[in-house]
Design a protein around this nucleic acid. Structure first.
Ligand SMILES: [Zn+2]
Ligand SMILES: [Zn+2]
Ligand SMILES: [Zn+2]
Ligand SMILES: [Zn+2]
Lengths: 131, 131
DNA sequence: ATTGACCCTATAGTATACTTTAGGGTTTAT
DNA sequence: ATAAACCCTAAAGTATACTATAGGGTCAAT
């Protein structure tokens, strides 16, 4: 399977495929006589895996680690894999919590600002966050 | 307050403080006779806000805008501030929504995994990412 | 035979957000 | 007085994740 076909069927850029290969996220494909890359069919799955994992907030480095676990499944335990996602889950929940704090601070400013004539001269996002 | 003290009390690097100043996230501090920066006390709050906002995925540019929101009657009209905070609120809610989606997707696959010490060949997290 | 679509490598560029280095001057404690 | 600890600027380097460019070869169709 040529790179263009692969890229298209996954919905990413050709350059990105080559980039992923260069970063070790795809194993080096065979070459055809003319030098073109000849990807095995399951590269599609692998790229879809990468895409999905990226979508849920994994970095390429992390994805590489995940892929390494994936290809040597019998050398790793469910516990390892589960720990990995647990850490990510914790991170995401932390983020949601902080965002909610910022949101309510902003909301406060937002509602403060429609009263018109009252003194609001010192109101900033920093002060709104304090209380 | 000297830069080292400030940096330490917020838990970031001195260089980073100077970088933020250079990017306009901190207002230019006064200088002491010897040329050392003399930060006002509330720089701590400002930096803590930056830290928090960064953690939840705001870029420095966005943080700069957030910090610039001040309900100052003499500088902005109520309309302006209100419009701006509304836009930012929408952005934040978008972020929360996205993160929540990612969280539930991750949670779902996370809960499928047995987490046991057996080999990950059957691991449902990996299967879920594959499919 | 030539156009257009495809493939190749290597290198450089982009954006964000630092971090490090080089080469200094200043303060504080012993 | 001298060493450790602190401060300064300016510029270069790093990491992430691409994206673009230059310069060229290959393939299918008209
Ligand atoms: Zn107002
Ligand atoms: Zn108002
Ligand atoms: Zn299991
Ligand atoms: Zn499992």
């Amino acid at each position: 399977m040529k790179i263009g076909h692969l890229a298209k069927s996954v919905g990413i850029d050709i350059q990105t495929v080559r980039y992923y290969e260069s970063q070790g996220l795809l194993t080096e494909p065979n070459r055809m006589e003319n030098g073109y890359r000849d990807f095995p069919v399951d590269s599609i799955k692998r790229l879809q895996f990468i895409k999905k994992a990226k979508l849920v907030g994994f970095t390429l480095k992390e994805i590489k680690e995940l892929l390494a676990i994936q290809v040597t499944k019998d050398k790793h335990t469910c516990q390892e894999v589960k720990n990995f996602t647990q850490i990510k889950l914790d991170e995401i929940n932390q983020k949601i919590k902080k965002l909610t704090e910022i949101e309510s601070a902003l909301k406060k400013i937002h509602s403060l600002c429609c009263g018109g004539s009252e003194k609001a001269s010192h109101c900033s996002i920093l002060q709104a966050l304090e209380s």
